[in-house]
Write a protein that binds this DNA or RNA. Structure first.
Length: 909
DNA sequence: CAGTGAGCGAGCTTCCGCTTGACTT
């Protein structure tokens, strides 16, 4: 039986659409992108690996030709699609109608290679039977210009990320990353922290009082409305009283502020001078209040409201929404559109009528213009699914899903309700102080006469002090000239506040406003900058780590344009022109990579790194030069350097606690830390024999224990120290263990020549030492356990240079077809490798000792041979390389562990 | 940031955007 094959992006969508198209159609999904540039070396095809641009998988010398691969986990899915295509007499590429969707359609076409059947591009913006059938009846051609625009975006991001990240590995720390989106997100957080650090608090005072609208009692019966109301001092002798907005970040009044700045004394004097004052109403100003409903949710607004009202992180919100979507409760949750389909508008309106009555229903449906500048409108707004909405109670949902559904449902219904209307009133009260000053108090109120949509939905605020939209303040019904008295009056002091830190939700909003990132990535952007250690969360606030300051400084100084807040917006403009066929992708990419008259190219920027001083980059002054304190970002985190007791510059050091936000590192705090440079010492107790305090610390060479010498100890006296064994940890080390470590080196006994043999731990692990003759030990336990006999035995063997502890091969594979030498698999410092005696090649991610064959080993060795004999570290400065190596090791172990699990996962599937 | 003595197989980290399971506890 032949059929028409329709391919959409999402499996849930495929299920729905299958029902609408009926017999003769088979609807499958691509599950997102089906091909991409190879992610890493293991996924890079051998034929491009050795090219100079192999690491990028983009032939930068020939039109920026990208090399795509089908990721391992997508291969079986592609096979399935190919199988379905065999029996198809038509192929409909029905991926989303945006840039990425067009590219997916093209990749599908290029990968599936349908032969002899018509291929059609089908696009729809809402999932209703009518819309789908309409779309199927009117397909279009593939828009190759749009695909070009997507490829340009993809290639630019790869060049940016894969060229700039290695700069950070070399200059800051291994494993770091830079990218068009994450680097700007990080910069936003860092810049905000810098604003907070530079912020100078200003204090100001004003007068607040409660006033009585009917000082002579009611004109008979009950009062019309309220009687008591609050008011604040507005002017003194006609000049406005300064409030928070009149002060700049420098703590001073803004230049143009024509205000009177009250301090505590003056404010209190004024209160006293107003003790007997009576007031009269100087003016009553009423204005109509009107507020329109908020647009239906798109991804970012949903994330913000879920954060404000339900306390959900962006990623939790998305995964809860994903479940709602898959089970048919809501429409697609990754969208930048606020548009509702006609049937959704109908459903919302009938729900308004049903729940709130006709008076809440506007005459005409409401539509919302999209505020997102680069919106691609491939989907609808996020709303309850279906042609009629289920109320939350009807869904049977529970927990987070229920709460999120309810939020979406209310917002959608409210978006089709009438405006809220009312009145806002400002009343000014005047009076004279006994000191002769004329003062005016101001009170404002808001009365909502018709709640409209506010009856259904009120948006949350990020600032807890801000008034919500439905908040009402009632004032008495006063006329100009009416007498008013003060029931109470007091001076109140205020301080200006630095700009608030970003939260996940506000950072995402900021990124969206700047056209950076896409609905499908907002949540993961937060994940990326958290994972890299650029920021951490303190409650809901995002706090930048010091390493982010180093990274952003480097990027701003050397890749200024790339971390410009407008970079992405500029890129989008160019992509739009490429999509319209007005610009050529190769010349745009070429300008970006190789530069032009106006712009320095990326390639030259990353090659010109000589002048970047890594040390300088990681050093930040604390306070002024006179304070003589600086913060440095080291391998083990940030630490302070300050003047020594004798005044020597930067002689004293102290760790900065990991969770101390940068803006709290004041000069006073820095001095406090430096005064007690114990840092993260762990007190283990007092040594019973020496009476000295024994502590554990994290040092340059890892965790170690040491003893604290008394203050009066001679300067030449040095405390004993000892590195922790690999099997020990700072969390679990005991005093007993520490005392044993401090005893080292342990004397094992005397050798045959009478010279003492000792056992100890060193840079390369445990070893024996006899004079200048040293021998490695295989385990740390031997340091305490080895007997003299065993030690003598080791010394009776000739010293093995290099492969002292060479283990026997793990596996023998046979002879190499090229060299004729036997190939064996061995375990080494860097993992398992194959060797023919001359050349060694490390096993790649997908190889294993159990599965490796002679052919594969020969292949690896051939690759290795092609690179020539091992070279000694040549170009880079020796000190640099040495320093970097340790860092690299530290990060790789963590990553390697993570990799292993993914590999296992991939294999089983 | 503590200070102790060799001699040796490198290879990998990383981007942004589309999408879901699959994995483990």
């Amino acid at each position: 039986m032949s059929h028409k094959l329709v391919i959409v992006e999402s499996p849930a969508k495929a299920r729905t659409i299958g029902g609408y198209l009926g017999d003769g159609f088979v609807v499958e999904s691509s599950i997102g992108h089906i091909r991409d540039l190879p992610n890493n070396a293991a996924d890079t095809p051998a034929k491009i690996k050795d090219k100079p641009w192999g690491r990028l998988a983009i032939d930068v010398d020939n039109g920026f030709q990208p090399y795509y691969v089908v990721p391992r986990d997508k291969k079986s899915h592609i096979a399935k699609l190919k199988q379905l295509l065999k029996d198809a007499d038509e192929l409909y590429l029905a991926t989303d109608g945006d840039r990425e969707g067009e590219a997916i359609a093209w990749h599908l076409l290029d990968e599936l290679k349908p032969k002899g059947i018509p291929v059609k591009r089908m696009v729809f913006h809402e999932i209703t039977k009518a819309a789908i059938q309409e779309a199927a009846a009117h397909p279009r051609e593939l828009d190759t210009d749009l695909v070009e625009a997507q490829e340009t975006r993809r290639i630019l991001d790869r060049l940016y990320g894969y060229e700039v990240s290695p700069v950070l590995w070399r200059k800051v720390m291994s494993g770091l990353s830079a990218g068009r989106v994450q680097s700007v997100a990080t910069r936003l957080v860092v810049d905000r922290e810098k604003e907070r650090m530079a912020f100078k608090v200003a204090s100001y005072w004003d007068l607040e009082g409660t006033f009585d609208g009917y000082p002579g009692g009611y004109p008979g019966g009950a009062p019309p409305g309220v009687r008591m109301f609050p008011a604040k001092l507005h002017t003194v002798d006609g000049t406005r009283v300064a409030s928070g907005t009149n002060f700049g970040a420098d703590g001073l009044l803004k230049a143009k502020a024509d205000v009177v700045h009250l301090d505590q004394r003056r404010a209190q004097a004024l209160v006293a001078a107003l003790a007997d004052t009576t007031y009269d109403v100087r003016s009553v100003e009423a204005k109509p209040y009107r507020r329109s409903p908020y647009p239906p949710f798109r991804t970012t607004t949903l994330q913000q409201e879920a954060s404000r009202k339900l306390g959900m992180s962006a990623s939790v919100t998305m995964s809860v929404a994903q479940r709602l979507y898959e089970n048919g409760f809501i429409t697609y949750m990754r969208t930048d559109s606020t548009t509702l389909s006609d049937s959704a508008i109908g459903a919302a309106r009938s729900q308004v009528q049903e729940l709130y009555g006709a008076e809440y229903l506007p005459d005409a449906p409401r539509t919302y213009a999209n505020k997102v500048k680069n919106a691609q409108e491939a989907h609808e707004a996020i709303r309850p699914a279906g042609d009629s909405f289920r109320t939350p109670a009807q869904t049977g949902l529970k927990g987070d899903q229920f709460r999120l559904y309810e939020l979406i449902w209310m917002r959608t219904v409210a978006s089709q309700m009438k405006d809220a209307v009312g009145q806002s009133v400002t009343i000014r009260l005047g009076g004279a102080a006994s000191t002769g000053e004329d003062v005016v108090f101001s009170a404002s109120g808001r009365v909502i006469t018709f709640h409209g949509f506010l009856k259904a939905y009120v948006e949350g605020t990020d600032d807890s002090a801000a008034a919500k939209d439905d908040q009402e303040t009632r004032l008495p019904n006063l006329q100009e000239g009416d007498p008013v008295s003060a029931a109470s009056l007091s001076a109140s002091g205020h301080e200006t506040k630095p700009p608030a830190r970003y939260t996940e939700a506000t950072l995402i909003k900021e990124l969206e406003d700047r056209e950076i990132g896409r609905p499908s990535t907002y949540a993961s952007i937060i994940g990326t900058i958290l994972n890299r250690g650029y920021v951490y969360k303190k409650g809901t606030a995002l706090v930048p780590a010091w390493i982010a300051f180093s990274v952003i400084r480097l990027l701003q100084e050397h890749f200024t344009r790339l971390v410009d807040y407008d970079f992405t917006a500029g890129m989008e403009d160019i992509l739009d022109e490429i999509a319209k066929g007005e610009k050529d992708r190769v010349s745009e990419l070429s300008e970006f990579y190789y530069g032009s008259d106006k712009l320095a190219g990326l390639k030259r920027l990353v090659e010109d790194l000589g002048e970047i001083d890594a040390k300088e980059l990681a050093t930040f002054p604390v306070g002024t030069e006179d304070d003589g304190i600086q913060l440095r970002v080291g391998k083990y985190g940030p630490y302070l350097e300050g003047p020594g007791d004798d005044g020597t510059a930067f002689a004293k050091r102290a760790n900065v606690p990991d969770d101390l936000p940068p803006d709290e590192l004041t000069v006073a705090k820095a001095k406090e830390l430096l005064a007690n440079p114990a840092g993260e010492e762990i007190d283990l107790g007092v040594h019973p024999e020496t009476g000295l305090q024994v502590v554990a610390k994290n040092g340059r060479f890892g965790p170690y224990v040491t003893e604290v010498l008394p203050e009066d100890a001679p300067k030449s006296a040095k405390p004993r120290t000892g590195s922790l064994f690999k099997s020990m940890s700072l969390d679990t080390i005991t005093l007993d263990e520490a005392m044993k470590l401090l005893e080292l080196p342990r004397v094992v006994g005397a050798g045959e020549d009478g010279e003492e043999i000792t056992a100890q731990n060193g840079r390369y692990g445990p070893y024996l030492k006899k004079g200048t003759d040293s021998r490695s030990l295989t385990s740390e336990d031997q340091i305490f356990g080895i007997t003299l006999d065993e030690a003598l035995k080791i010394y009776s063997q000739p010293k093995q240079r290099g492969r002292a502890a060479a283990a026997p091969p793990l596996k023998e594979l046979g002879n190499d077809p090229v060299s004729g030498q036997p190939i064996v698999v061995k375990a080494g410092r860097f993992g398992e490798y194959v060797t023919d005696g001359e050349y060694n090649a490390t096993l790649r991610k997908d190889d294993s000792v159990e599965e490796i064959t002679l052919e594969r080993a020969a292949e690896l060795l051939a690759e290795r041979r092609a690179k020539g004999p091992a070279k000694k570290a040549a170009k880079r400065g020796a000190k640099k390389t040495a320093a970097k190596k340790t860092t690299a090791k530290k990060t790789t172990t963590k990553k390697a562990a993570a990799k292993k699990t993914t590999k296992k996962a991939a294999k089983k599937s």
